[in-house]
């Protein structure tokens, strides 16, 4: 297992894709937090909850990019055919999948930390330039950092499981963006799905950072439930990877 983890870590380090994803994510976090900080009325930003909402934008993006990172870590193997030599070197597909999940979770956590840090820093600058006093406490900052890291890490695991099940890189990336940005991000919020919406995996990622007054679950239970999603999706991915032929 150690060898597989080293192999997976080397694979992630030896191509530019993870760094490009990270750079895109940081760029979007800067853009979105700066725009929010610039355009939202001062009155809405004067309270702690408004400031927390802006600084929490990094979590949304790191959840998406963590999921993309996880999905790419396995769909890239199918896209470039490297799954064949990999499975010849290690025919145990379950261990291959587990190694990918563990490395993706670690890297997803880093994505979450980076996004939250950048988000907090840009929010701080944006609010300061408008003369708004920063009300975020040390506890708020810790919630943002830890919640974002855990949410992105777990969504990276979900991404690997989905990638193993679907295999098609373009399709899975479009599906992840559509789900997190459109279906959960817009449709459910616009039309409302009742309290059940808070049990969906994207919402659980938001609940992981806490402080959302409308949220149903505290960060702890939300993270536990998100872990359950990871286990279920990984199991589906494992079954698909184990049973289906590799062309």
């Amino acid at each position: 297992m150690i060898g597989l983890l080293r192999a997976e870590w080397l694979k992630q380090r030896s191509i530019w894709s993870p760094l490009l994803l990270l750079a895109c994510m940081v760029g979007l976090v800067v853009l979105i937090v700066a725009l929010h900080g610039k355009t939202i009325p001062v009155r809405a930003l004067s309270g702690e909850s408004g400031q927390f909402e802006i600084a929490g934008q990094g979590q949304r993006l790191s959840t998406l990019f963590g999921a993309l990172l996880g999905a790419m870590s396995i769909t890239t193997e199918f896209r470039h055919g490297t799954i064949r030599p990999l499975l010849l070197a290690t025919p145990n597909r379950g261990r291959v999948l587990l190694a990918k999940i563990l490395v993706a979770v670690l890297m997803g956590g880093v994505f979450g930390l980076v996004a939250a840090t950048v988000s907090i820093a840009v929010a701080d600058v944006a609010l300061s330039t408008r003369g708004i006093a920063i009300l975020l406490t040390q506890s708020d900052v810790m919630s943002l950092l830890v919640g974002s890291a855990v949410a992105a890490a777990l969504w990276a695991g979900i991404g690997v499981g989905l990638g193993a099940a679907a295999r098609n890189q373009a399709a899975i990336m479009v599906a992840l963006c559509t789900w997190l940005l459109f279906i959960e991000g817009v449709l459910f919020e616009a039309f409302g799905v009742g309290k059940g919406g808070w049990f969906l995996p994207g919402s659980l990622a938001r609940e992981a950072i806490g402080r959302d007054s409308a949220a149903l679950l505290a960060p702890g239970p939300a993270i536990l439930l998100l872990c359950l999603y990871v286990v279920v999706v990984a199991a589906v991915g494992w079954m698909a990877l184990s049973r289906r032929d590799v062309a």
Partner: peptide, 29 residues
């Protein structure tokens, strides 16, 4: 015990040949 080559293009184009082999060596012990 068995070495096999099934396709001539089973590589990530951005990865170096040495890193491709290194990853496989790690995975295969």
């Amino acid at each position: 015990q068995v070495g096999a080559v099934l396709e001539s293009n089973d590589f990530h184009p951005w990865r170096s040949g040495r890193n491709h082999l290194r990853a496989l060596a790690y995975a295969a012990g």
